[in-house]
Design a protein around this nucleic acid. Structure first.
Lengths: 187, 187
DNA sequence: GCTTTTAGCTAACAACGTTAGCCAAGCCTG
DNA sequence: CAGGCTTGGCTAACGTTGTTAGCTAAAAGC
């Protein structure tokens, strides 16, 4: 009785939403099937398995991250672009912790793997921020890695409640933006 | 036939070593039992279950991280201490990716949870680095979070092969130390 | 030396991912 | 429009993994 009208994109989208709700570790095929009003084995007509599902969720997440950052920095440059980019990134991770978690440890199989392409787009959005600073060619890659590490580290630590004590996290984040901005202008 | 002579510490140590070898995601109770020359259910005499095991591995990892950083910075201050600390941290994560992964997402249940205590010790080691800089009291927490985010982000991205293209990762890391050192002296 | 605790074992079960094989709904062609 | 083909759902079944129950023999204590 083919009536549910699923397709791979719908399954992946529902999987991503469910991962955000219950956490990636609790994203089970049975739970996803139930959410879609279908029996578990039916999912295998659309995705190859759980590993494939998570990989596709990662691709979706990276695509959304790239769009979010790219959209946020439009019309801005320098410190404004930096702030917009990292705020957009952090907001995405906090709103969509499950799908973002899918991107961690997902290794592209080759340069034309969709994972690599969307990942490259996300990194490109960060790279656009750096063009607003006067950074020597040889330093751009290092600065980009710094930006990624800081964004990823801060967002994941916060998403996992890694910051325990006193000081306000939003305040720390703004402090961090100022810190990086000063540093990049002095490079 | 109680002869294997296991105890919780031995099980946790073996679990941590195994996690480093095969990855935390592939750390199965059966595999660990086999490694210890014992049948799977016997492990439950020493740890309450897989969740408990991973939690204890996280405590062990945090304790080792704290010792590694604490030891590395002894006798150093300022930039030397900063470099020693983050190098020790990164080396630990790269040598022990499995046990470090156990610390991600482990939430302490209360302030006297061993997890919180060892985590606090590790953070304290980073905090010691900051005392070598002239940072205002109100900025210390922010700087500490920056340091943690950067260390965690860089190390985990590298451990997951998150840095894809050209530039040398070690070079980026040294660049990053210089970047943070300059920034902290200008705070 | 007898009792009690402890630490191993076997057997069994539940949850989950996955595969095989069936069958009806929708489409495509003659 | 009829018949076949493709598709997307289904049930049944299996392997793996985590976990519990209950037994037993080695060690520890009186």
């Amino acid at each position: 009785m083919p009536k549910a009208g699923l397709d791979p994109a719908a399954v992946v989208a529902a999987g991503a939403a469910l991962a955000d709700e219950v956490g990636l570790a609790n994203l089970t095929m049975g739970l996803l099937a139930e959410r879609l009003g279908v029996r578990t084995p039916s999912l295998y007509k659309h995705v190859a398995g759980q590993e494939d599902l998570i990989r596709r969720i990662a691709v979706l997440a990276l695509s959304e991250v790239a769009d979010a950052i790219g959209g946020a920095i439009q019309g801005y440059a320098g410190r404004d672009a930096l702030a917009a980019a990292v705020r957009a990134f952090r907001a995405f991770v906090l709103e969509h912790p499950g799908r973002y978690a899918a991107t961690i440890g997902a290794e592209p199989s080759g340069p034309d793997d969709p994972l690599a392409m969307e990942g490259g787009r996300a990194i490109g959005a960060f790279a656009a921020v750096l063009r607003g600073y006067e950074i020597e060619e040889s330093d751009v890659d290092h600065a980009l890695r710094m930006l990624r590490s800081l964004s990823h580290g801060f967002a994941t630590l916060q998403a996992n409640n890694g910051f325990q004590w006193s000081a306000d996290v939003d305040e720390s984040f703004e402090w961090l933006i100022a810190f990086v901005d000063r540093g990049l202008r002095a490079v």
